[in-house]
Amino acid sequence: MRPSSEAVDMLAHTHVTDCYQCGKCSAGCPVGERMDVLPNQLVRLVQSGNFRRAMDCEAIWLCVSCQTCSARCPKSVNCAGVLDALRQLAVENNVINAAARRTIVFQQVFLNNIRRNGRLNELELVGVFKSKAFLKDASVPLLFKDSLLAPKMITRGKFHLMGEKVKDRALVGRIFERCFAEGPRGHK
């Protein structure tokens, strides 16, 4: 999908034109301090059609989807949904912010995991994510991060080593295929 304010409105089920830039979203954002572009600025960029900057920023990938911005917005703009939409548009248009690569890879690995198993296989998720992230940004610390926790998790019975799979995995595959093939459209 080509980025446009209409596309964002449709994906996020909102009206970005309603935003009057009060900044309450940015004021309450738990990760606002780390963001290179604040949520209200992202909405402004969408309003003014500057999608290059809106998609190519780390901020959209720092968002923790806590919905605080949307819940407190005086104009009922679904700001969290706008960030979701920007993430989707960024990946579809191959705009990958360098600093956010790891998060993007994580989300993709997560979805592939679901596509294959129907349910999350955590061990596989960790393994695939770490090797992919390592290949992408060669972060040795990341490769071993949490490895200290792993034995503990196993002794605490917190890991299913095999992971679960749904019975009708073929259907899950078809659901994915349909959602990605028909051109993703917003529903929520």
């Binding site: 994906l11 989807s65 979701d84 939409a85 993430r87 989707q88 990946v91 994580f106 989300q107 993709q108 997560f110 979805l111 679901i114 129907g118 349910r119 999350l120 749904v166 019975k167 009708d168 259907l171 899950v172 659901i175 994915f176 349909r178 959602c179 990605f180 028909e182 993703p184 459209r185 917003g186 529903h187 929520k188």
Partner: peptide
């Protein structure tokens, strides 16, 4: 019976339709 993952953050970040389809299943 045979429930699937809800899609979580990954689905609503990458494909809005999937974020409805998985719960819909």
């Amino acid at each position: 019976d045979d429930w699937v993952c809800c899609g979580a953050t990954a689905a609503h970040s990458l494909n809005a339709k999937l974020a409805t389809a998985l719960p819909a299943r």
